[in-house]
Nucleic acid binder design. Structure first.
Lengths: 122, 122
DNA sequence: AATTATGTTATAGTAGGACTGGCACAAAAG
DNA sequence: CTTTTGTGCCAGTCCTACTATAACATAATT
């Protein structure tokens, strides 16, 4: 799985790492049980510091996307805490949809976007 | 329109201001043409610095939610750049839905959330 | 047994953003 | 004229992001 960092982005590097890994899981580019490069290895190939990768991995672990195994590195292991995820998603959606509503974006247009994104999952 | 700041939140104050004003517009608590308190006034009532309010207003202006009028203060004036908003919303949704998909949240559950939020708009 | 690679922790430094504070200005309102 | 407005500049504090170096115990490799 290819990971690319935009150093000119205003998004923190560890957030970019997080999001790309999460999207990689959603896209089935990496699956349950697969392992990600080690902290040092990924830091080296991407060209960033070890601690930055470690922070991304730590957060992914805390949020229940990976399990850190000393033998196999960072192993994809998603816990299914839907309740918590639904609550967080609702908070995020509330702000996102409010912005859209101000700009006259209809519910149907939102649904169209969701459909488009789900279609990307093949 | 009541504005409340959570000083213990990890969200920046000016972001909280932005979001509350945007949600205020979406909820019809404030409407096109209405004006918000002046920079100094709002800063005073909320108990924060003038420059923090100014930053929130400046961003809202740049994002096309208000117009700054020296006579009337910050006037609600939403520009309808749907194309840009749809692009931004899609980027945000991509990350949000990826998280959900990893946690086995179905498209139908997402739609249910959207319905719930739209129902809040009365 | 020795070497290497791993996750993890500690400490320290730099850079930038967030927030506050004070001051000042021109423009508009009263 | 006086007050209030948005705006700009400069300075200072605090926190986060990122880097850098070092150290450690554990585990895989040789």
């Amino acid at each position: 799985m290819l990971i690319e960092i935009d150093f000119n982005s205003d998004e923190a590097i560890y957030v970019q790492l997080q999001n790309q890994i999460i999207m990689g899981i959603a896209m089935n580019l990496i699956q349950e049980g697969d392992s990600l490069p080690s902290v040092r290895q990924l830091a080296n190939t991407v060209g960033i510091n070890m601690h930055t990768v470690n922070k991304a991995y730590s957060m992914l672990k805390q949020e229940g996307f990976i399990r850190l195994d000393r033998r196999k590195g960072a192993v994809i292991a998603v816990d299914m805490d839907k309740a918590r995820e639904l609550l967080e998603m609702k908070e995020q959606l509330r702000v996102l949809l409010a912005r859209g509503r101000c700009k006259n974006i209809s519910k149907e247009e939102v649904y169209a976007l969701v459909e488009e994104i789900y279609d990307e999952y093949i």
